[in-house]
Design a protein around this nucleic acid. Structure first.
Lengths: 176, 176
DNA sequence: TTGATTTTTCAGAATTAAATGAAAACCGTG
DNA sequence: CACGGTTTTCATTTAATTCTGAAAAATCAA
C-alpha cells in the first residue's frame, strides 16, 4: 500500500509539472496559458473531467474554465461527453498525436497563413499597375512572398490531410 | 510628372497598408506588432533605413525602434550596414523568401519545439518507473507526444537546411 | 410551472506585455 | 580628452490581455 501511495504521489508531481509547464509553453505558441493547461490536464486525464474538476485542479474561476473549455472544443482538441444519468458535461481530450497535430496545423493555417495570403494578394493587386522602379520592386517582393505563402498553405493542407502512416513513410524518406 | 506623383502616392498607400496589416498579423504569429511592422517596412524598402527613418515612418519612440531593430538583427531577418563616410547604422532586410522562411522556422523551433521536447523528456523520465495503471497511461501519452515532437523537430531541421530548389522539387512531388 | 442545477455572459479587476522618453554610455574626431 | 552625434538602457507609463465572480440565462426533472 505504501508503495502504491508513493507512486501515486510521484505521478501527481510529474503530471502537475507537465500541466504547469505546458501552460507556460502555450504562451510562446500564442495560445493562452489556461487553455494550454486545460489541454495538458485533459490529455493526461484517465477519465473525462467536469468544469468543476478543472476549476479545482487548476485553481481558476468558473468563467475562465468555461471559456477555455469551450475554446478547446471549438478547436476540436477536446470534446464534451455525456455520462448517462448525469446532467453536467464531462470533457475528454483527443489523445492521438497525429490528430492533435493536424488540428493545430489547420487552426494555425486558418489564423496565420490565410490572412497573410489575403493581405499579400490585396497588396499585389493594388500595386500591380505602378510603373515606377520602386513600384515594380515592391510588387515583385510582395508577389514573391505571396507565392511562397501560397505554397506553404498548400503544403500544410496536403500534410494535414494525410493518413499518419503515409506521413511517416514520407518523412522517413526525408530523414533516412 | 502628374502620373509619376499619382503612382508614387498609390505605392505609398499600398506599402503603408502592407506594413500596418503585417504588424497586426505579427501579433497572431507571436511576434510583437512593432517588430513585424519594422520587418515589413524594411522588406519593402528600396534603400537601407536608419533608426530615425523607422521612428518617423512608424511614429514610434527611439527605444521601441531600437529594441525591435536589434531583435530583428538577432533573428537574422535584418542586418546593419555601414555607409562609408556615415557614422550611424543603416538596416536592410533579408529579402529572399526561402531565407526568411528558414530563419523563422529555426527560431520557432528553438523557442517552441525545443523547450517542449525538454519538458516531455523530463516528464517521461520522471514517470518511467511508476507501475500503477494511471502511471503507465501517463507515461505512454507523454512518450507518444515526445516521439512526435522529436520527429517534427528533425523534419524542421531537414527542411530548413535544404536548398530552395530541392525543397521545391520535394514539394512538387507532394503537390503534384 | 416551479425549483434546482448547470452553463453562459460580461463588467470590472488583475496581470502581463509593450512603448515611451530621458538619462547614461559609447564612439569617433579634432 | 572633450565634444557632438549616436546607441543603449531602463524606470515609468500605457495598452492589451486574461481572469474573476456574480448575475442572468438555459436546461431539465418533478
Amino acid at each position: 500500500m505504501k508503495t502504491v501511495n508513493a507512486q501515486a504521489e510521484k505521478l501527481k508531481l510529474a503530471r502537475d509539472e507537465f500541466v504547469a509547464q505546458w501552460g507556460a509553453l502555450g504562451t510562446q505558441w500564442g495560445i493562452n496559458r489556461t487553455m494550454a493547461q486545460i489541454h495538458a490536464l485533459l490529455m493526461t486525464a484517465p477519465q473525462p473531467m467536469t468544469t468543476d474538476d478543472v476549476m479545482e485542479e487548476l485553481e481558476i474561476s468558473r468563467g475562465n474554465a468555461h471559456t477555455n473549455l469551450k475554446e478547446l472544443v471549438s478547436w476540436g482538441l477536446i470534446r464534451a461527453v455525456v455520462k448517462k444519468g448525469e446532467r453536467r458535461e464531462y470533457f475528454e481530450a483527443e489523445k492521438d498525436v497525429w490528430q492533435i497535430f493536424t488540428i493545430v496545423a489547420r487552426e494555425r493555417k486558418r489564423r496565420e497563413i490565410e490572412p497573410a495570403l489575403a493581405l499579400l494578394a490585396k497588396c499585389a493587386e493594388e500595386s500591380s499597375g505602378i510603373e515606377t522602379p520602386e513600384g515594380k520592386a515592391f510588387n515583385n517582393q510582395i508577389r514573391a512572398l505571396e507565392e511562397f505563402v501560397g505554397f506553404a498553405s498548400k503544403m500544410s493542407d496536403r500534410i494535414s490531410s494525410m493518413k499518419y502512416g503515409f506521413a511517416v513513410q514520407l518523412a522517413s524518406k526525408l530523414l533516412g
